[in-house]
Design a protein around this nucleic acid. Structure first.
Length: 998
RNA sequence: GCCGGAGUGGUGGAAUGGUAUACACGUGCGACUCAAAAUCGCAUGCCGUAAGGCUUAAGGGUUCAAGUCCCUUCUCCGGCACCA
């Protein structure tokens, strides 16, 4: 047996695999002929940034490669491709910095990347490689854009439809705002403007995140907050708001479906959560407030229409379109102007800081009318109201909203309470009974503090199992008077001082002792005793309950009703306000309704409408940069837009001398005279355009007539599945960018009938980051980067692969340890040495057979669940067992090598061929385990007393319960532990333990 | 603040409610060697010479049995954050 020489072995097999096309994916037709089922496992394709890889980068690729190899051996037609996402800022920035053309930069970086990747032994089908900057590729990105441009979202059918169908509707029926006749009378420009409001890709104006340094607009997920304000994620340059002409994708139209369909996907829960939060769906009402002296109405969005009667003022965002008009009628115009200017400045800084005090200015003299009470309401502007969300205006309810409360406190605005906490008992002995009358009662709940200690009175009731504060009816008195009276009657204390009222609550329950339902209108009152003087309590009260003094901590475990807790919290925290749902008060005809009922009824009564809002915005689909796909649209001198037809696609990027940003807001393409003359759009597409559909190109990368042929689409994107790609592996940081955009693009294509599945990615796996040994991110800046080339050269690719899979859970961030990697190398060498123990036939299998079959089972299952670390550990156990056996049958050893093959492909093929097997191990069938061989001849049973293990028994696998119990009772340790006591129960868990309960 | 997830040896980590600390690193001792490295063997949660006891962030609960389920608290990581 030769020494294990990883360099020689790895070089040999990498060459062999390329020559023999070992990892070629079959076309739909070829595979169908062989009845091979498809399995699509995809890595997120990289930006070839040129910086070079560190050991963390290949981790995801290795994981997906392990799965791909296993599936291939199990007979699937596996599609496992790789490509490059090379448009966009990273590549362009690199080119700018190195003073070379972006295309050259991409070529160079791709070459570096492939060189580094090639030595790891990944099983990609390189024949399917794609590059988003290849004109033959971006031809279809442009085509896809045009499909989206030529679609509108039909809310009734909840799907995209061709814009031509909308035109037909306008021609025959018109719309809400114009008739068919009026439509026909419109100029083509007018029609274009109308349709633009419907298209899924549309031109619009909006405040965008403008980065002066990069000379471009950035998406929300491309900027981050910093202490000095928003900055670009890439480069960290300041970002400000700027109103600009833009192309957008109407992704908000899909808000509902993007949330709903998440449920059907096999994605990590936190990824779904992140997308849900980002989309930020909330249901509420839009309610209009009329203005005195103005024909305009202020529309507000609220999720709490039930609190409408608690509105005491309105607040508009300083940017609200009406402000300009209203302020000229206000008495304090200059003050308003100053505030607006200050807001704009703050906009660049940090307007969204949460901990700052809320500021605002009243539009003195401007009054809105309450839609229900018709009372006049002051109107304010304040920067805590955001122009982009809802309607940019809010109705302020300081009694039930924390922000409004803070604002009202600062500017001394009135507070009106309209919702009271409500507790209805629906289960248990106190549950309201339908067959009994409901009796309303005004009651007080008194919390009484000790005269010198921090203690409070509780009542222990003798007949019922109640523990309460002092409670009682008011008999028509003021609550504070009733409270003092009740305390004196029930406790005997005389010198009681009223401190404050704690609020109100209502409760419905069944009063057993009176056989009636009670509807209690409770007022909480806080009292303090001035001294301990007291009189005797009348005998009747004494029999009812006992008075106890409780510390703060004791109170919390003493009282058990929600109402008591509510009032108790009001004692502890004076400033708290009630923001939950409850029952309405002070709301005229709506009094007594629950918040839930009231929201709908009040909205209806004041002519509002129920609407759904989303936090996320339509996605900006334009960059003022050179290095992106040209948008295939042109405008003539009159501004009429025309499309570049499919036969003229791709619309290629022109050659330019200077591709640096102009900084004016127009892209560098504006300085290309021929381009400008043709009227072509000077913005290019954003980085996420090409990555939103690339997984569809891999299935048929050379298709000429379509982005992929129908045959391949039907094969790989089976319409019976929810998602097309079976497993998608990549970083969690793409949750709100790429993964959302790709889902949107795919859904439009699905609606238009271009793809068979409604979602792009069925299962998603996030690989964890590999940190440096110091626990920080690997970065040149820290000088802690570990280069994979060095590791491969020193230990071999198989060791690197094995170690990265063994380190820990696939999705966990783990520190790299150059110390620990030696363990993986040792394992490989020990497997190598096992060769010497292999015999054709006749080895004593009893030592290793059970372990081998268990290992095959575990590795098969663990690879599927991405539990690579435990799969490797199982194989280590198996190999250790082999070492203990004198000899191993060749068949058994090769089964072991097969399950090892996905992890250490070079070593596996070398061993496979050392035993003169035909072909590559990676085309050999995956081994199966024999269920009968999973159980060994003997088993170990733990003997425990009250769950504590005292002894172990080794028994035959056929031993019965009674035999085992009998054997256990003879164990000395058990007898000692029982100390003569007889067990009350004996619990036997088959194959595991027997527990004696004493 | 809100929403997720997690806290287990010196380290990375393992454990369908059923023998906690698998597997690996490190460390110690031994073998081989003139010696060292490599390799092989043994040991290795904590306290204790031992018998034995204790131990999964802390505290409580459910259970014959809890790292695992429930409640409270603390810490860390991730996401969102004036979203009306």
């Amino acid at each position: 047996m030769k020494e294990y020489d990883h360099k020689k072995i790895e070089k040999k097999w990498q060459k062999e695999w390329v020559e023999k096309n070992t990892y070629r994916t079959l076309s739909a037709k070829q595979a169908s002929a062989k009845k091979m089922r498809p399995f699509y496992i995809l890595d997120m394709f990289p930006y070839p940034s040129g910086v070079g890889l560190h050991v963390g980068h290949p981790r995801g690729y290795i994981g997906s490669d392990v799965l791909a190899r296993k599936m291939r051996m199990q007979g699937y037609n596996v599609l496992h491709p790789m490509g490059y996402d090379a448009f966009g800022l990273p590549a362009e920035q690199y080119a700018l910095e190195h003073k070379i053309h972006p295309r050259k930069a991409v070529e160079k970086n791709v070459a570096t990347f492939e060189k580094q990747l090639s030595i790891i032994g990944l099983s990609y089908d390189w024949a399917r490689k794609i590059n988003t900057t290849d004109p033959e590729y971006y031809k279809w990105t442009q085509w896809g854009f045009l499909q989206i441009y030529n679609s509108w979202f039909d809310p009734k059918k909840n799907k995209a439809r061709p814009i031509a169908e909308l035109v037909r509707i306008f021609e025959t029926k018109g719309s809400d705002t114009f008739s068919a006749k009026e439509w026909k009378a419109m100029t083509s420009m007018e029609k274009q403007n109308v349709l633009m409001q419907y298209r899924l890709a549309y031109e619009g104006y909006s405040d965008v995140n403008w980065c002066p340094h990069l000379g471009t607009v950035l998406a929300n997920d491309e900027i981050v907050e910093s202490p000095t304000g928003p900055i670009s994620e890439r480069g960290g340059y300041p970002v400000e708001k700027k109103r600009m002409r833009q192309w957008f994708m109407r992704i908000t139209a899909y808000g509902d479906r993007l949330i709903e369909d998440l449920e059907k996907l096999n994605w990590p829960a936190h990824m779904k959560e992140i997308q849900k939060n980002w989309i930020g769906k909330s249901e509420g009402s839009e309610i209009a407030f009329e203005l005195e002296h103005f024909p305009d109405r202020v529309s507000v969005f609220t999720t709490r229409a039930d609190t409408l009667f608690g509105v005491t003022y309105l607040v508009l965002a300083p940017e609200h379109l009406l402000v300009e008009k209203l302020k000229s009628h206000a008495q304090n115009e200059s003050e308003i102007d100053a505030y607006i200017v200050a807001t704009k400045k703050k906009d660049e800084m940090m307007r969204t800081a949460t901990d700052k005090d809320k500021t605002g200015v009243e539009l003195v003299g401007v009054r809105a009318m309450h839609p229900a009470t018709k009372e006049p309401l002051p109107v304010w502007i304040a920067d805590y109201v955001l122009p982009q969300y809802g309607t940019g205006a809010v109705m302020a309810v300081p009694a039930h909203d924390e922000r409004d409360a803070g604002f009202a406190l600062r500017y001394e605005l009135p507070v009106k309470n309209v919702v009271t906490p409500f507790f209805a008992y629906t289960t248990g002995p106190d549950a309201v009974r339908n067959d009994k009358p409901m009796v309303k009662r005004d009651t007080v709940v008194a919390i009484v503090k000790h005269w010198s200690e921090d203690k409070y009175i509780g009542l222990k009731w003798k007949n019922q199992n109640w523990k309460t504060f002092v409670v009682g009816g008011t008999n028509g008195e003021n609550p504070e008077i009733a409270a003092v009276r009740e305390v004196q009657e029930e406790t005997g204390y005389k010198n009681i001082k009223y401190v404050r009222t704690l609020g109100e609550a209502q409760s419905q329950f069944y009063a057993t002792h009176k056989s009636e339902n009670r509807w209690a209108f409770m007022t909480g009152v806080y009292l303090e005793l001035e001294n301990g003087d007291h009189i005797d309590v009348v005998e009747g009260e004494k029999q009812l309950h006992e008075v106890v003094w409780l510390s703060k901590k004791e109170v919390e475990s003493f009282v058990d009703s929600n109402e008591s807790f509510l009032f108790w919290n009001a004692v502890k925290d004076q400033t708290q306000i009630f923001t939950n749902d409850g029952v309405l008060v002070n709301s005229e005809m709506f009094d007594g309704l629950t918040s839930q009922e009231a929201r709908e009824k009040i909205t209806e009564a004041v002519g509002g409408k129920i609407v759904t809002k989303y936090k996320f915005r339509d996605a900006v689909f334009a960059r003022q940069r050179y290095w992106g796909e040209p948008i295939p649209l042109a405008k003539n001198a009159d501004g009429v837009i025309s499309e570049v037809s499919l036969s003229k696609l791709p619309l290629e990027l022109p050659k330019v001398t200077s591709y640096e940003p102009t900084g004016t807001g127009e892209g560098p393409l504006a300085s290309v005279s021929a381009w400008k003359k043709a009227g072509y759009e000077t913005n290019t597409m954003p980085g996420w355009a090409g990555s939103s559909w690339y997984f569809m190109r891999y299935i048929d990368p050379s298709a000429k007539k379509q982005f992929a042929s129908d045959t391949e689409l039907a094969y790989w994107f089976n319409k019976k599945k929810t998602g097309g790609v079976d497993v998608y592996v990549g970083g969690a940081e793409h949750a709100t960018g790429h993964l959302l955009y790709a889902r949107f693009w795919h859904k439009v294509f699905f609606d238009l009938g271009y793809v068979p599945t409604k979602e792009p990615f069925e299962k998603l796996m996030n690989q964890g980051m590999i940190l440096a040994a110091d626990g920080r991110k690997m970065s040149k800046r820290w000088g802690n980067v570990v280069n994979p080339d060095e590791i491969v050269s020193l230990y071999g690719a198989d060791t690197l692969r094995l170690y990265e899979m063994f380190m820990g859970p696939f999705d966990a961030s783990l520190p790299w340890s150059t110390e620990s990697i030696i363990g993986s190398r040792r394992f490989i060498e020990r497997v190598w040495k096992l060769q010497a123990r292999v015999v054709k036939k006749g080895a004593d299998v009893s030592i290793y057979e059970t372990v081998l079959h268990k290992t095959i089972k575990k590795v098969t299952e663990d690879i599927e669940s991405f539990s690579f670390n435990t799969a490797v550990s199982a194989m280590m156990i198996c190999s250790n067992t082999f070492e203990k056996a004198g000899q191993i049958n060749e068949e058994d050893f090769l089964s072991f090598v097969k399950i090892l093959a996905p992890f250490t492909p070079h070593l596996a093929d070398e061993l496979w061929n050392a035993f003169a097997q035909k072909g590559s191990i990676h085309s050999a069938p995956w081994p199966t385990f024999n269920p009968k061989k999973l159980v060994s001849e003997t088993m170990t049973i733990a003997v425990s007393v009250n769950g504590k293990v005292k002894a172990e028994l080794v028994v035959s696998k056929d031993a019965t319960e009674s035999e085992i119990v009998a054997l256990a009772q003879k164990e000395e340790k058990l007898i000692l532990a029982l100390a003569g006591r007889n067990p009350q129960r004996v619990i036997y868990v088959p194959n595991r333990l027997v527990n004696f309960v004493i």
